[in-house]
Design a protein around this nucleic acid. Structure first.
Lengths: 194, 194, 194, 194
DNA sequence: GATGAATGAGGCTTCATTCAT
DNA sequence: AATGAATGAAGCCTCATTCAT
């Protein structure tokens, strides 16, 4: 919902430039974080975005502002893909597919875990945001699998499962991650058999 | 196996302080790494060990030397505890107990994963060391559980399981880790039922 | 030949302070090198220039960048003074006058010889620059003296003479240097007499 | 004239070891100075001598003690070679031969000039020592050449000539040094012709 | 006496952040 | 608003020198 919704006031102009800079910074930060981690030098991000460091600081006074913005951006994008991944798949496979998509998101967050554990108040909202966006998606996928008789959804909290998959994806080895995700899913199937 | 194993050789003396300093450095480094990660300032480690930075550099010219020494030290200690944890426990519980002990080891390795992925040749030997020490222990535990009919050991490579548990323990939340480890073990039990 | 030679191009602005800092750094470095040699602490140079060390590193990322810049700066200045020194002097005296001016340049290069001999590729261009600027000047002076029948110019390579005078000036005793320069000139006159 | 001239007192024993260490240190220092200059790391010298740094400091508490000892040692050796170089040579050639031998001595003193100019009182005695040993030798060689009618010895102070040749030899290019020494000698011959 | 381990000052360099243009 | 130059704190590392063994 952009501020420019009301065109009657002269409002701020030049918003185009500024917004483009923000977008470029977010994109650059995402790319740099994936390669060099969230502690990457500020100048590297600014350079990749094609702006001066001053511009970066104007839009993101704290490093944490940039990190959280990138993070939320990607959380939104990942959550939005859920529907597409699910359609046409068996419930259990849909669950695995989405979890694997989710690991791709995490794998670009080198150093984020450390930031989250740093105790910096700026990151306090992230887990909640994370859960608010992914929780419903995952809950729905788990319920689908449960209704298909594949698992017993009550055996795991969605957020627990997300954390686990997030941590597993830190290995950076996608094949390994996939195997371990399936093993966890098997764990859910195990209890369903009892 | 220290040189002093054979007391008949004159060997170097003075080793007393030097060895004590090395020990203090390893202990301090372990503690600091757990809190501040493996990129913690050199001075912090030296100060905690009660020595000057020069002493640290004498014994560990590269940061990687200190990291690998601490790592191997703890790998050894963790592996050595396997027997005690196993005795008197049912096979499956022994497996879980040891894996949880193992997570305690990993939880103090903040930043080590990044170092391992850095491509620095100094760390190349660590995965092998890790596997050589833990592989046999875990294989033995898995076989015990298999012979008890609890799991099907062939469904997972010991090293895969170690990596998974290591990554899970990065959450820093021991309860969560324990739940997820049990979920993975359930995954192994699932296939055993088929 | 600065970019700003053509005022029609927009070019970068802000250049004013930056250029002033560069100039101050070069001047400070020249002074500090003369007193403490080219290995003087970076901070000393930055302080004398009235800037932070970061500014020094921005403009001269390597110490060798600063050394070569100072060097070339002074080579240019010294070469440019040739005309003024020559006019109104007898050829031989003009030669001596210029060589003595040249010694003043060298006397501020404490430690440069060692740097040149260090094998660092950054200094490879200096001897060539040196020769390209001073060679023609000295050749012209030698030819003037030869045409006046004072010396036989073919008896010495200009670059040999420059090196010799440069080394002689390292004594730091101007009077001694002057006597020895004259002695060398006498050496050139000797052969002219035969 | 060794202290052990009087064998009646028990005197200090172990002198052999200590003296050997001193000799090894002097030799090592000479070699290291030639390669790395007189500011070379203390440990490099101790290592090359095969002793601990403590031993170096015992015998040479100050770096200047070691430098001056090496220097005097070599001054003595160089002066002692004068007779051999002179015999069987024409006076002028004898002079050149000795000067060139002298340049070989200087060429191994990278950084000594800087030390001498440092104002450190420890080096104050060196020029005097230098002159007291070399002055007579050179005076004698100059007089020989003068008596042969080749030069006019009064035109240059022996010490001036030594300084000049010392500085010329800093180029490290022996051929160049030789040419310039000959040019200086020609300078002396020039005045003899008048 | 000899050794070499320990110390820590001192020099180097990077980079987050500010601020003049 | 944007830029990027300047700043300087902070971390790294290397020795000269001392001193326990």
């Amino acid at each position: 919902m952009p501020d420019s919704a009301h065109s009657e006031a002269p409002a701020r102009r030049v918003r185009a430039d500024a917004q483009r800079n923000v977008d470029q910074l977010l994109e650059a930060a995402k790319a740099v974080f994936a390669v060099s981690g969230v502690d990457a030098p500020v100048r590297e991000i600014a350079a990749q975005a094609g702006v001066g460091v001053g511009t970066l600081y104007r839009h993101f006074p704290q490093r944490s502002d940039l990190i959280t913005a990138v993070f939320k951006n990607e959380v939104d994008a990942t959550a939005a893909e859920a529907a597409g991944l699910v359609s046409g798949r068996e419930p259990l496979e849909a669950l695995v597919a989405w979890l694997m998509r989710f690991t791709g998101f995490i794998a670009t967050k080198q150093g984020l875990a450390a930031a989250l554990h740093s105790g910096d108040a700026a990151y306090e909202s992230l887990p909640g945001y994370f859960e608010s966006r992914f929780g419903p998606v995952l809950t729905s996928l788990l319920e689908g699998a449960e209704q298909a008789g594949e698992i017993r959804a009550g055996d795991v909290e969605p957020i627990d499962l997300l954390r686990a998959v997030a941590n597993l994806s830190l290995s950076g080895d996608e094949d390994h991650t996939r195997r371990m995700v399936r093993l966890i899913i098997d764990g859910l199937r195990f209890s369903a058999e009892r």
